[in-house]
Design a protein around this nucleic acid. Sequence first.
DNA 1: CGGCATCCTCTTTGATACTG
DNA 2: CAGTATCAAAGAGGATGCCG
Lengths: 217, 217
Amino acid sequence: MRSYGQLCALAKALDLVGDRWTLLIVRELLIRETCRYTDLRSGLPGIATNLLAERLDELVEAGLVSREAAPPPIATTVYRLTDRGRQLEPVVEALGRWGAPLLATATGKEAFLSHWLALPARLYVRDTTPKAPSVRVELRPGGEPITLETVGDGSVRTRIGATGHADATLEGPPQVVLHLLTRKVTLSAARKRGVRLHGDPKVLRRFGPKPAAQAPA
Amino acid sequence: MRSYGQLCALAKALDLVGDRWTLLIVRELLIRETCRYTDLRSGLPGIATNLLAERLDELVEAGLVSREAAPPPIATTVYRLTDRGRQLEPVVEALGRWGAPLLATATGKEAFLSHWLALPARLYVRDTTPKAPSVRVELRPGGEPITLETVGDGSVRTRIGATGHADATLEGPPQVVLHLLTRKVTLSAARKRGVRLHGDPKVLRRFGPKPAAQAPA
DNA sequence: CGGCATCCTCTTTGATACTG
DNA sequence: CAGTATCAAAGAGGATGCCG
């Protein structure tokens, strides 16, 4: 933890979360709420185990992550964001919005884990008709499915894993699935790019882009 | 430029701007619009000159910064953010908002340069009565003064350097000056913490906190 | 197996000196 | 002024070992 030693809010923030891997660890914790060490390691392909341990120590030390002994059925330690740590969500959201266009230049050699989809789905997708009955969509980007559920206030909830009764399921490349949910592409265009929809196509009307935050008028 | 190799917008963003010093270079360019190499180096106390050169190369390569030959009077190269680079402003703003509370724990040994104040002044301060005649306040945190000017649409503009006729000047510790402008402290409390006001105290009514961006309703 | 600690190699950083 | 060159120190990445 080297410090920039500058009296500047940005520099101070980077002193804590600017190290390599740190914000990606925060990403995993934002997705999963509680993580075991192994969940984190498998969610962060490429991280060295000693680095993960070191970063976790620093995050706990900085008060952004808590380390708790899990109740008996699990009998292991779980990691969780503190309130202060969860306040990094707008930072992760802003960086993700900025980085989204870069996904178009993917080489195809990148690692991909399906649960990563849960974060952009929560942050960038909204329910266009919150008063209508709740719907569930299962996303199957390959690997473990992600369940998307409208929650009644215009936002959507995401869960890792399949759901009992999905109103629709979407299979295909993750970026295209996201573009479909945020209406950046039409259904037919998405189909041409490898997306397959099962179930009622009308549920797609329920979803739209959640715009970037704006300064209040 | 080591890549995380993950198909994730956050990871892709960090591939480009996650290296040490990179976002602080962006900060300098957000503050100054155009910078010479020396402006950057002096605005980034602690950076090694080879690292600055290397980061600038990477930023130019990534299309976030442009390197231009300045017109004759200057006869040097100047650096400027591209549009894509300027789009990092929300990222810097989010990180700065998150990091602001950390300034309270400053040890007093940090470097401080007065022009750094120009960025939070622009990002976190608004004009509460934009229709009233424009006002100018000069901030003197020690070092070069910063001019704050209401611009008519509720936002404020900042300039490095003194102004001809200021409606008021504020001297004192930078954090306290910012807290005063965003109404986190009263004038009398600010005075106790070292702030001195010259000119018309009423102009302070013109300024208030610019709230964090919110999702539109 | 989960949760690290150690050891080793390689890369990046930081400090300083030097050049067109 | 705007960098490049050099070199020691710190950090990252990978493999493996240890302990409940």
